[in-house]
């Protein structure tokens, strides 16, 4: 019973954190909150790793005089989690720097507005009116107008204009 409860708590907690993080990223509009949601999801994944190395009634894997023959938990996931936390810190720092710059440029933290302005920027820089407008696309149909045939006839056959 207790094992079941612990099981649910641990695995449910880890998976819950991951899912909460993902839902946060999907549903939140504020980009700062999105960064936080990402951190929550990372925490969930880290928790899953730690659980993987857990065993009951075991001590930390540090050899001291008294711990000679005692059961120890798995040191590998601990090392992995250490690494992944540090990685997470680096990514979050970069994300925050980007949040700051995005805010300075677009004066908003709303992901929807940012996306709109970004699309406009890209469209402007490439000289396209809008991605979803009805302007001639790359694979537009090459149906020549019948009326144009006669005009070009002279050019192609080497005739005078």
């Amino acid at each position: 019973m207790t094992t079941d409860l612990i099981h649910w708590l641990l695995y449910g907690g880890a998976m819950g954190l991951i899912v909460i993080g993902i839902v946060g990223v999907v549903t939140l509009n504020n980009i700062f909150r999105i960064v936080l949601a990402l951190a929550i999801a990372e925490a969930g994944a880290n928790l899953l790793l730690v659980i993987a190395g857990y065993r009951f009634d075991a001590i930390a894997p540090i050899l001291t005089g008294s711990s000679a023959n005692q059961l120890m938990v798995d040191p590998v996931p601990q090392a992995m989690v250490l690494t992944s936390i540090v990685i997470g810190v680096g990514i979050q720092a970069l994300a925050l720097a980007l949040v700051v710059k995005v805010y300075q440029n677009y004066k908003t933290l709303d992901i929807g507005e940012i996306h709109q302005q970004l699309s406009t920027d890209i469209d402007n820089s490439s000289g396209v009116i809008s991605l979803l407008s009805s302007e001639q696309p790359a694979g537009e149909r090459p149906l020549p107008e019948p009326s144009a045939q006669h005009e070009t006839a002279q050019l192609n056959q080497g005739g005078d204009k």
């Binding site: 094992t3 695995y11 880890a14 998976m15 190395g53 065993r55 075991a58 798995d74 590998v76 996931p77």
Partner: peptide, 23 residues
């Protein structure tokens, strides 16, 4: 789905192949 997956795992019963060797 994630809970369905993890339900079959046993807490504290992971194989720990390399972990045990390192210990």
């Amino acid at each position: 789905l994630l809970l369905v997956i993890t339900w079959q795992f046993v807490v504290g019963g992971a194989p720990m192949l390399i972990g045990e060797a390192i210990l």
